[in-house]
Design a protein around this nucleic acid. Sequence first.
DNA 1: CTGATAAAGATAGTAATACTATTATAAATA
DNA 2: TATTTATAATAGTATTACTATCTTTATCAG
Lengths: 224, 224
Amino acid sequence: MSVEIKISVNKGLYLKEPQDTKLGRKIIESSIILFNQIGFESFTFKKLAQEIGSTEASIYRYFENKHLLLLFLLNWYWEWVSYLITINTNNIADPRIKLQIIIHSFVAAAKDNIGVEYINESKLHNIVISEGMKAYHTKEVDQDNSRGFFLSYKNLVSKVSEVILEINPNFKYPHALATNFYETSNNHIYFANNLPRLTDISKEGDDAEEVEKMLNYFTDKLLA
Amino acid sequence: MSVEIKISVNKGLYLKEPQDTKLGRKIIESSIILFNQIGFESFTFKKLAQEIGSTEASIYRYFENKHLLLLFLLNWYWEWVSYLITINTNNIADPRIKLQIIIHSFVAAAKDNIGVEYINESKLHNIVISEGMKAYHTKEVDQDNSRGFFLSYKNLVSKVSEVILEINPNFKYPHALATNFYETSNNHIYFANNLPRLTDISKEGDDAEEVEKMLNYFTDKLLA
DNA sequence: CTGATAAAGATAGTAATACTATTATAAATA
DNA sequence: TATTTATAATAGTATTACTATCTTTATCAG
């Protein structure tokens, strides 16, 4: 028996569901590799087409532009982490342990592989870390927001903030703290590897594990 | 009597010191306005030249490209906040109060105007909030780092981390916390205005003041 | 006051990017 | 087998991100 999981994202993000066709899945697969290799700025549909052995025009039938392709990948990531959190906290009563699992999910989601063959979760996590914030720091953020392109992120934050309130119902900033778990995880993995003097996480050890420890340490103090 | 202050930044960031010529100062002044108006992605030297009534080629004599121009502005900002922190914490003995002043500087620096006529500090802060992270989330970050383009940011973090250790010498993550004060300030001002469900800061009130309160609340718990 | 030097403006040109449009071919399905 | 759908092939355009060159204007030393 094999369990098939399909994560679906907001339909406004694509012109044609890429997960339903061969070329579409190749676009996803190769774009993850290419975004990782050359970064968002240098990434073009022409280069992607060359990688795939297809054409620019064909890719434009799936995605309006690279910004929406990146948003597609991010939404997939947010939905995936949400899913991981749901199944991994399923039978757990203690909200403190739930939160530990959530933090672990933010930091090390890439190690859990649910086996969607066209998605390399570890590379996708790197994209989230290195390029993610570019998707919501644009002049079009309000438009994109009203089209629902950040719903998955907001739902994820909402889910985490509920656990925070279970631990401490008087905590004043549950959403901000939830957002911070996510942003801080990504930032400090990035800083450890690129701007180490901005963090105390070392590049040498297991950066993910160290960030996890740090966030748990912060949590203990904040929600005591 | 008037006190003249000139903030200088890493010489590698420009081809010719823009603060020393009329056109150079106009480039700085107008680029702050234009980055704010249209954002980093749509910003071009051609548009900037039109604003100024100059030419693309003339601007290229000052800055290699818009990425380095943004980095110039960020460096100016980091140096400026450092300066504010230095003078405002000068005679203060209690490190807890020092840290409150630091947090206030991150959140509300824009309100302190040191009177450099070609720089609108409030708009510059908006650029830091909306576009800042794009300067260090690139594939060239290691190169830029080795050219010293983030030294001002790292020195700022270092300065703040020293105060954190004065308060609690056993605190394990002084650099990460210092970085977080800066990043969290900017993020939550941005979220309050654009993605409010990611934060508990409301758009209606004084967002800066609310973020300040939140960071002080976090600090109390973390460094207790 | 002149002549030299530096700064800025004017103009042109190029390769790459971010698309749009059209037409042809191949594959899937009714 | 006919028809729809997906993809490939090709071409074209406006804009971007520069580089190069030449002329004009301002500054400043002798």
